[in-house]
Design a protein around this nucleic acid. Structure first.
Length: 258
DNA sequence: ATTGTGGCCTGCCCGC
DNA sequence: TGCGGGCAGGCCACAA
């Protein structure tokens, strides 16, 4: 499940394709072309070079010098391959199989290298000129004030944190981990947080993302192994609650998340 | 406008 | 051993 941490590691890896001439674009699966992007438009990348690898939330952005910007989304099982290697060593739920039929999009460079999207479940996507303005502030950079703005809502706290238009980058696992660490009930109305609780959430959000980045990804959280039916809270031993919040399976501790 | 719901996709895992 | 059903979840269309 590529969340912000995995996509950031893809972005770093994608920097190695900058300034390399694009000689071929393959689009074997038209399904993953989004927002009306056509194979013909994508072939206009031939002759260009990428000059910057950016990221906003879970969206990877590859800018060309004079041509369009390429946007890549990874869905749940998407993997970025660069010159045959993967940007993330172990993606939970993403099979490590290298089925050639799972390559949905591929760019070849003059030196023989390549950049490819491999996605077993086809939930990822590729498009030219993605609308970045639809995304909220990036979760790795978000300020306390921006977070407070994102939480001005009656919607459940978790739903708001996962709304990519409000905060960009958090998925189901990271959100559960952050709220568990912050001791906040995912189902609480977002605007019910006190200023102390908002400060705590902001601090835990930043700390969690940085720590899990160093550990190796969204699946390395302290709550992660307990996100199974019947497990106990790793913090206080209470029986974890499993429910649906914001449309997503949610694990939380009824004792210390209030 | 805001919030919630269902569906898409398909590999994987569990129980029979 | 094979098979069916449920599940995973990012994202989008649509409903209320």
């Amino acid at each position: 499940m590529p969340e912000i941490l995995e996509v950031e590691s893809y972005r770093v890896r994608a920097e190695s394709v900058l300034r390399r001439a694009i000689v071929r674009v393959r689009t074997p699966d038209a399904w993953i072309l989004k927002q009306g992007t056509t194979p013909r438009q994508l072939r206009s990348l031939v002759g260009e070079t990428f000059v910057a690898a950016r990221r906003r939330g879970k969206l990877l952005l590859l800018d060309t010098a004079g041509g369009p910007t390429l946007g890549v989304r990874f869905g749940m099982t998407g993997v970025l391959e660069v010159d045959g290697a993967e940007g993330v060593e172990q993606l939970r739920y993403a099979s490590s199989r290298r089925d050639p039929g799972w390559v949905r999009f591929e760019i070849e460079f003059a030196d023989g290298g390549r950049l490819a999207l491999r996605d077993a479940r086809r939930l990822g996507g590729v498009q030219l000129e993605p609308d970045e303005s639809r995304l909220g502030p990036d979760a790795l950079e978000i300020t306390a004030a921006q977070l407070a703005g994102a939480l001005d809502s009656a919607a459940p706290l978790k739903a708001r944190l996962m709304d990519q238009g409000r905060v960009a980058g958090l998925g189901n696992l990271l959100t559960d981990e952050v709220l568990w660490r912050a001791g906040l009930d995912p189902a609480r109305p977002a605007r019910s947080l006190t200023s102390d609780e908002r400060r705590r959430l902001h601090r835990e959000l930043r700390g969690t993302l940085r720590q899990l980045m160093r550990r190796g990804g969204s699946h390395t959280g302290d709550l992660h192994d307990a996100r199974v039916p019947g497990a106990q809270c790793p913090l206080d031993g209470a029986a974890l609650e499993r429910r649906t919040v914001g449309g997503r399976t949610t694990y939380s501790c009824p004792r210390h998340q209030t």
